[in-house]
């Protein structure tokens, strides 16, 4: 009997196993980006910019060029790379502690300048790498290691919806919020990320994809339960869907 390969590991992923926890959405999104890079045939001209956070070792996992930026500064490093080499496909890959907290100024100004970049924003409502501290995106009343009684909005403010925050900026052409909790949502996420890459290749402009991510270890849930929490609790506050699309 002959065998036909229907699904295999993307070439743009290196042999090194991911350093992420079992079931982490980071791994899924790394895999999707690798699949998209393979499908578009852009491995030789893709440059990624990794954040500080769990994805700090992203350069080990992809078989294309990836550089590292100072905490929160990935969009400006990506801007520099793209301006010097406009023929390259440049994306930044950032978590919520990186992009929405220390990197808030960089993301807003990069978006406002309408740089022809792709930004992948992984939102897991806490600082995963350092032990699950409260982040700007932590939901109200959500328990983290630095909000053991739940986030008090009176003292810590409200969670920031980054996608909606970037919506009024004229330089931004495409914003979509997605999740990756089951096969259907992963297929949709892949479509959104691919569109964001295509926007860059066809010179449409700045694209921003927010991925609602799980954090099984710091949420103290197993991967299946943590994805359920994303579906039921997180997606209620961070509404899934296309937020802006200008061609």
């Amino acid at each position: 009997m002959k065998e036909k390969v229907l699904y295999k590991r993307p070439v743009a992923l290196s042999e090194k196993p991911f350093s992420y926890c079992p079931g982490c959405t980071h791994s899924t999104i790394h895999k999707l980006i690798a699949e998209i890079v393979d499908e578009l045939g852009i491995r030789e001209k893709t440059i990624g910019v990794a954040p500080v956070g769990c994805a700090v070792f992203a350069y080990d996992f992809w078989n294309f060029d990836v550089t590292e930026a100072a905490h929160g500064r990935a969009p400006v490093v990506a801007t520099a790379i793209k301006r010097i080499m406009p023929e390259k496909v440049v994306f930044s890959y950032q978590g919520d502690g990186d992009l929405a907290s220390i990197g808030m100024a960089e993301i807003i100004h990069t978006a406002n300048r309408g740089e022809n970049l792709t930004v992948i924003f992984i939102n897991n409502t806490n600082y995963g790498m350092t032990g699950g501290q409260m982040a700007p995106t932590t939901l109200a009343k959500q328990v983290t290691t630095t909000s053991p009684l739940g986030r008090d909005v009176k003292t810590s403010g409200y969670p920031i919806r980054m996608s909606e925050l970037l919506l009024p900026l004229q330089g931004v052409k495409y914003i979509e919020r997605v999740k990756a909790t089951d096969a259907i949502s992963i297929i949709r996420t892949k479509k959104a990320i691919k569109k964001a890459f295509m926007n860059q290749i066809t010179h449409v402009g700045f694209s921003f994809i927010e991925v609602l991510s799980n954090c099984p270890t710091n949420w103290k849930k197993d991967p299946v339960e943590s994805n359920k929490w994303v579906d039921e609790t997180m997606a209620e506050f961070f509404q899934i869907g296309k937020i802006k699309d200008i061609q």
Partner: peptide, 13 residues
């Protein structure tokens, strides 16, 4: 598609 580690390969017979 859901395997985060890209550990599964699928073949049609």
């Amino acid at each position: 598609i859901v395997c985060p580690e890209a550990a599964i390969e699928v073949f049609e017979l």
